[in-house]
């Protein structure tokens, strides 16, 4: 299977104005293949979002090497990295982050504005199809403020997947939803990701959501360690990575 992302000894340190540098992440080793289902759990402040930003090419590591589709991300020009992110990575945010004032259709079309090919000219049709896929074919022209939480997250999912990314990064995708809606939203993400064989990396507090993945990790004091399926935040550090073959394995 194709290696999408490969992190080797990745660390992230930030300079503080009134103190010594703060290390948020250190020594992160991770390999993500096409079709992988990963979950990462961790306490607040453990570095989950920082890791997601690194994996999503929105930030650069201060230590180690991070390769995306074979490219050393630190060697890429800013604009190349931006285009690579837009083309290959889809984000699902906890707070949905839908653009206010725009309808569901317009929100889903937005990523296609940054595509230079046929996708741009066919953006409306593509957006309609994906909204239909997530069950919102009848809410195309509804604005986010008139949609329920679950519907908003489905719009956000449609928007994240509209360019058929190979890596989906979901940051607490069900954090703002009730249990039942959260479950159906995750089912939807997995279903759509499955159709394109995209890898799905989910950051969550919720053990139930984490347990849906095939590979489980826990962030502890800035270090990424494998974890048992279903073990929530603060649980014991696992040694087995359930359901993962050796090729798609993780070196920790």
């Amino acid at each position: 299977m194709t290696v999408l992302l490969e992190a080797t000894g990745v660390g992230r340190t930030v300079e503080l104005p009134d103190g010594p540098p703060l290390t948020i992440l250190s020594g992160v080793d991770l390999t993500v293949h096409e079709g992988d289902r990963l979950s990462i759990v961790g306490r607040s402040g453990s570095g989950k979002s920082t890791l997601l930003n690194l994996l999503g090419l929105m930030d650069s590591p201060t230590a180690g090497e991070l390769r995306f589709l074979g490219h050393d991300t630190r060697a890429l020009r800013g604009s190349t990295r931006d285009r690579l992110r837009g083309r290959e990575i889809g984000f699902v945010f906890q707070q949905f982050n839908l653009l206010p004032g725009r309808t569901a259709l317009e929100n889903v079309q937005t990523p296609l504005l940054y595509s230079n090919g046929r996708e741009f000219w066919r953006r409306e049709q593509i957006a309609r199809e994906i909204l239909d896929l997530v069950g919102l074919g009848d809410r195309l022209h509804t604005r986010p403020e008139r949609l329920s939480g679950g519907e908003q997250q489905r719009v956000a999912i449609a928007r994240a997947l509209v360019r058929r990314p190979r890596l989906i990064l979901a940051d607490e995708p069900t954090g703002a939803l009730d249990l039942e809606t959260g479950g159906s939203v995750m089912g939807l993400i997995e279903e759509v990701a499955g159709q394109t064989d995209a890898a799905l990396v989910t950051i969550t507090h919720d053990p139930a959501i984490a347990s849906r993945s095939t590979r489980h990790f826990r962030l502890e004091s800035g270090r990424l360690v494998p974890s048992d399926a279903g073990v929530g935040v603060g649980g014991p550090v696992g040694v087995d990575v359930g359901g993962v073959g050796t090729d798609a394995g993780v070196s920790v």
């Binding site: 999503g56 929105m58 800013g78 604009s79 931006d82 285009r83 690579l84 992110r85 837009g86 083309r87 984000f91 982050n97 653009l99 206010p100 937005t110 990523p111 504005l113 940054y114 595509s115 928007r159 360019r163």
Partner: peptide, 16 residues
């Protein structure tokens, strides 16, 4: 600012 950040996450370059 938030909207600009969201657009950047979709692949909008700085020049764009």
């Amino acid at each position: 600012i938030r909207e600009i950040g969201i657009r950047r996450s979709f692949g909008a370059t700085r020049s764009r």
